[in-house]
């Protein structure tokens, strides 16, 4: 049995520049010995890993491995029973999800969680909520700050709409859009908040090849143009190995591998977890 520690890239390691010229910086978020239980079920067992500034970090693993639970821990839906979360060099106390959003962490969901009754534009504008400060009175009479702010934020929203090439569906109710576009709008809603850490829960689930290519391109562009750190869960191994800088592999709630795509690909434990192994 391979020892996990021999696969890990030695930490802490220095900021470096990737082959394609992106700068990978310091550790932004560090999970230390996270354990999450639901009653008698242990969803996450003593997992530690870090996410570095500017990188695309993938979390992979078979179904039920605890990947989504991990993302929910990061975004504050679940509070782990044990372990610490360090964000930007500080230990994060237990927080409500909306407080975590204000710290610059945005995410998308595995099953699209758009606001179905609202238009594309309104959905994306909702992503700017944390940047809007005008009071009730200013909004009630649509004067001063409320009006100014709305136009400022609209410009930010339009930039994302241009970026994701969804200008044509700006005023369309999102409930009526095709699946691939809904996924894109959801990415836009997370992106418009200008997060420093973007969490994507299966951004390519249920997509055809073209849609996957589009989405991969958007993810890489986001990372490249805005310098956003991205942590994503994905099942399509081809995509994961192509776009991510480092990969965490989980199985039955435990971490079985961590490293660059090549290292993970050659890890015997990872191969066993995916292909199955005879227990004798």
């Amino acid at each position: 049995m391979t020892d996990v520690s021999t696969i890990d890239i030695p930490t802490p390691y220095q900021p470096y520049t990737t082959e394609d010229g992106r700068k990978i910086g310091d550790v932004v978020m560090e999970m230390k010995n996270i354990t999450l239980r639901f009653g008698g079920v242990t969803a996450i067992k003593d997992i530690s890993f870090d996410i570095r500034e500017g990188e695309v970090r993938a979390i992979i693993g078979p179904n039920g491995a605890g990947k989504s639970s991990m993302l929910n821990v990061i975004s504050g839906f679940y509070h782990p029973q044990e372990g610490e979360i360090w964000y930007r060099g500080e230990k994060r106390p237990p927080m409500k999800p909306y407080e975590i959003a204000r710290q610059g962490i945005a995410r998308t969901f595995q099953n699209i969680a758009l606001f179905k009754g609202m238009t594309t534009l309104d959905n994306i504008m909702t992503g700017r909520l944390t940047h809007m400060k005008s009071g009730i009175l200013a909004q009630a009479f649509w004067k001063g700050r409320a009006e100014r702010e709305e136009i400022e934020q609209r410009e930010k929203a339009e930039r994302i709409i241009d970026f994701l090439e969804i200008q044509a569906i700006r005023k369309a109710p999102v409930g009526s859009l095709p699946y691939g576009l809904q996924k894109r709008v959801e990415l836009g809603r997370a992106l418009v908040a200008e997060p420093s850490l973007l969490l994507l829960d299966e951004p390519m689930a249920g997509m055809n090849v073209e849609e996957k290519e589009d989405m991969s391109r958007f993810i890489l562009d986001v990372n490249d143009e805005f310098g956003t750190t991205i942590a994503l869960i994905e099942h399509d191994m081809g995509v994961v190995m192509d776009i991510s800088d480092r990969v965490v592999v989980m199985d039955y709630g435990a971490k079985i591998g961590d490293g660059t795509p090549d290292e993970v690909r050659n890890n015997q434990q990872v191969i066993d977890a995916y292909l199955g192994v005879s227990h004798d």
């Binding site: 606001f115 309104d122 944390t130 997370a190």
Partner: peptide
């Protein structure tokens, strides 16, 4: 009309349409 087209109105509609997603993008429920 002004309240419902501003960010307060959007936070209401976000809560109405999907309260979990609303909270994750920063709406204080």
């Amino acid at each position: 009309r002004n309240l419902t087209r501003g960010h307060l109105g959007r936070s209401w509609m976000a809560i109405r349409d999907m309260d979990i997603a609303a909270e994750i993008i920063g709406v204080n429920p």
